[in-house]
Amino acid sequence: MADDITPEDDNAAEPVIRDKRRIDPETGDVREPKADEQDESDATAEGADDDSAPSAEADAEPLSAEDQALLDEAERDLVADMRNDMLRAQAELVNFRTRVERDRAANREAVIAEVLRSLLPAIDDLARAEAHGDLVEGSPLAIVAQKLRTSFEKYGLKTVGEKGEAFDPAFHEAVVQIPTPGVTENTIADVIEQGYALGDRLVRPAKVAVAVPAE
């Protein structure tokens, strides 16, 4: 019958299994590769070398003159951009340092002005005492007053408002106006309370009587 299968046919239909493990599972020894497997491995390696060879040769091909010119131009542009970025960063750093120094000086001046402003009432009392003749030269109170004035001058404190100078509303506060014949512009006729400035910063305006032109 056609469906009968002989033992020989069974053997022919069985798959061939090759054990390619390098370690023998029974003995634990390293197996030496067979001749046909070695040839197959060498052929595979040679094929890989053959595939990579054209790529290496392609990479080694020199650039054309046009491509080289484009590459050089790109490199010059990159260097120029990096140089501009560096110069811009340096300029920003200089500006930052300038702002920091300016803010630091302004903060220092503001703190000094606030401290001096708190001591002005004592200076006013000493000025009144001097005006009444209470500060005798060489007396302890006169020595203290001189030391205080010297210390204030060291920080740049200066008086504002002198009799006879032109009235300036930025530094003077007019307490009273006195119409005066012959006066052509507003002039300080008397200083009621001395004003003070620290550099360009006004610590306290001077309270003055102003002589104004008579109508």
Rank of each mutant, 00 (worst) to 15 (best):
R31V: 06
T184K: 14
V144F: 08
P121S: 04
D9V: 09
D124I: 04
D168R: 04
L202K: 05
R21E: 00
Y155C: 03
V210F: 04
H132C: 04
K154P: 00
V210P: 03
A56Y: 06
S52T: 12
M1Y: 11
V203I: 06
L119V: 07
L141P: 03
R99W: 04
V100I: 13
M86K: 13
A48G: 11
A145S: 13
A60H: 01
A142P: 03
D10C: 15
I5G: 03
D134F: 12
R21C: 01
V144W: 07
I5N: 05
H132Y: 07
E40L: 11
V203F: 05
E37C: 05
K154N: 08
T159G: 11
P169L: 07
D42T: 09
T98D: 09
V100S: 02
S41I: 08
L63G: 04
V191M: 02
E162N: 11
D103N: 13
G199E: 02
I192Y: 05
G195R: 00
A56K: 12
G182S: 04
D124R: 09
P179K: 06
A170C: 00
E101D: 10
R128P: 01
L148E: 05
D125E: 14
V191C: 03
F96H: 12
Q38I: 08
L141Q: 14
G47Q: 08
G182Y: 06
E114V: 02
A65S: 11
L198T: 00
D19S: 10
V16E: 11
R149S: 07
P181F: 00
N186I: 03
R83K: 14
D168T: 02
S139I: 03
D10N: 15
T27V: 00
R108K: 07
L135P: 03
G182Q: 05
A56Q: 08
T6A: 06
V16W: 13
P205Q: 01
E8A: 14
S118W: 04
K158L: 09
L93A: 15
A12H: 08
T184V: 13
R201H: 05
S55Y: 15
D19Y: 09
F167I: 02
F167H: 00
R204S: 01
E40G: 06
R108C: 05
D10S: 14
E37R: 13
A53Y: 12
A13V: 10
L135T: 01
R104K: 08
L71Q: 14
V115W: 05
I123D: 10
D24P: 01
I17Q: 11
E114T: 08
